[in-house]
Simulated scan of single mutants.
Amino acid sequence: MTDRPLFLYDGDCAFCSSCAQFLTRRIPNTADVVAWQHTDLDGLPVTQDDCENAVQWVDGGRATAGPRAIADLLRTSTGVWKLAGHALAFPPIELLARPVYRVIANNRDKLPGGTPTCALPQAERDKLA
């Protein structure tokens, strides 16, 4: 395991990969932004099912998912991004963000950059490879 926090995303999903590229290019942060498929999940407090369900933030032995993971990542940044992370972690805002996140996650194959593969569970993707 690395000393830096990990932000794990779905590397088989073009939409998720585009978002991860945006994170690494435009938002300074202290995390390693990595596709979960390229990460040894053994020893991390997340499972493959967790990673298939939502983005994950892993910092030491602690993990968060979905909007909370995004908030945790943003809070390691600076300026407006750090402020956005604190706002997203604010309970009323996070409560509103959860269903929005779920709608986006469930429809990522239809979003710009998404492909039909984005909608498939990992077991189905493996069959295509």
Score class of each variant (00 low, 15 high):
Val46Ser: 05
Ser77Thr: 02
Lys82Glu: 10
Ala54Asp: 14
Asn53Pro: 01
Trp81Asp: 10
Glu52Ile: 03
Gly60Val: 07
Ala84Thr: 11
Trp57Cys: 14
Ala71Leu: 13
Ala54Met: 10
Ala65Glu: 09
Thr47Trp: 06
Asp59Thr: 07
Pro67Gln: 02
Asp72Ala: 15
Thr78Ser: 14
Val46Glu: 10
Ala71Tyr: 06
Leu83Tyr: 03
Val58Ser: 10
Leu83Asp: 00
His86Pro: 01
Glu52His: 12
Thr47Asn: 05
Lys82Arg: 15
Val80Gln: 01
Ile70Lys: 00
Ala54Ile: 08
Thr78Leu: 09
Asp50Asn: 15
Arg68Leu: 14
Gly85Pro: 03
Gln56Phe: 02
Val58Gly: 05
Ala69Pro: 08
Trp57Gln: 11
Gly66Cys: 12
Val80Ala: 12
Asp49Val: 12
Gly60Gln: 03
Ala63Glu: 03
Gln48Lys: 10
Thr64Cys: 09
Val46Thr: 06
Ala84Leu: 14
Asp72Lys: 03
Ala71Thr: 08
Leu73Thr: 05
Gly60His: 07
Gly85Asn: 04
Ala84His: 08
Leu73Trp: 12
Asn53Val: 03
Ser77Phe: 02
Asp72Asn: 15
Leu73Pro: 11
Gly79Met: 04
Val80Leu: 12
Arg68Val: 05
Leu74His: 07
Trp57Ile: 10
Arg62Asn: 02
Gly66Ile: 01
Ile70Asn: 00
Ala54Leu: 09
Leu74Thr: 09
Asp50Val: 03
Lys82Ile: 02
Pro67His: 01
Leu83Lys: 13
Gly85Tyr: 01
Leu83Glu: 04
His86Gln: 08
